[in-house]
Amino acid sequence: MAQIFHPSFNTLSRVSIFGAVFFLGAAVWGWDRLLRSPYNTQVNVAREQPVPFSHKHHVAGLGIDCRFCHTSVEESAFAGIPPTKTCMGCHSLVWKDAPMLEKIRESYRTDAPVEWVRVHDLPDFAYFDHSIHVSKGIGCTTCHGQVDEMPLTWRENTLNMDWCLSCHRDPEVFVRDRADVFSTEWRPDDVSAEERAELAERYHLESMTNCSVCHR
């Protein structure tokens, strides 16, 4: 009977035995890269919406404050998505016949909600509250990025637990004055390390890494 395996298989088998650890390592690394890729985290992926709402136009172009639409961000866990009436406050007269806005007008006529596509969605086992972050001097752009530069809205950060912890371990690095929380012009360099330490003291910031802070 002829040999089934060619002599070169001796080498191959040795390589694969000693190389197994590298193959496994590569597989784990590849899996990790996949989980952290925009394919999975949706970071920098602009979402299609039923109406192509542009934060860039409304925030940078018109200077409308975040809280004009996201009215509950200072008092509640949920920042709030505006009712169609908020859109119509201006668009009953401005761009009132634009085809792009037909779904808004239809929603206003029929009282059926516009079905916006959610951009930021935490897992249900993570508790999150906007109001406490805002009142402790953590600004919108720190987590949501420069929303004023987004024609369609995308997710700026992964919302993964290691990302949350990067601030929860040492919030002093990201704090700003409460007066600047809703500013889109504020940049991290605007505050010196001493000022940040002073703000952290004033707002009673501390490292919050106990599991039950978020998983309650």
């Binding site: 949920f78 709030g80 998505i81 059926a112 909600p113 079905e115 969605d121 897992p123 249900d124 086992f125």
Partner: peptide
């Protein structure tokens, strides 16, 4: 299952109510 637990988030769509809210 743990990511999407059987409860509504604010303004989430509903299959239960006729108007979807």
């Amino acid at each position: 299952d743990m990511h999407d637990q059987p409860r509504y988030e604010p303004l989430e769509a509903s299959a239960f109510f006729a108007d979807g809210r």
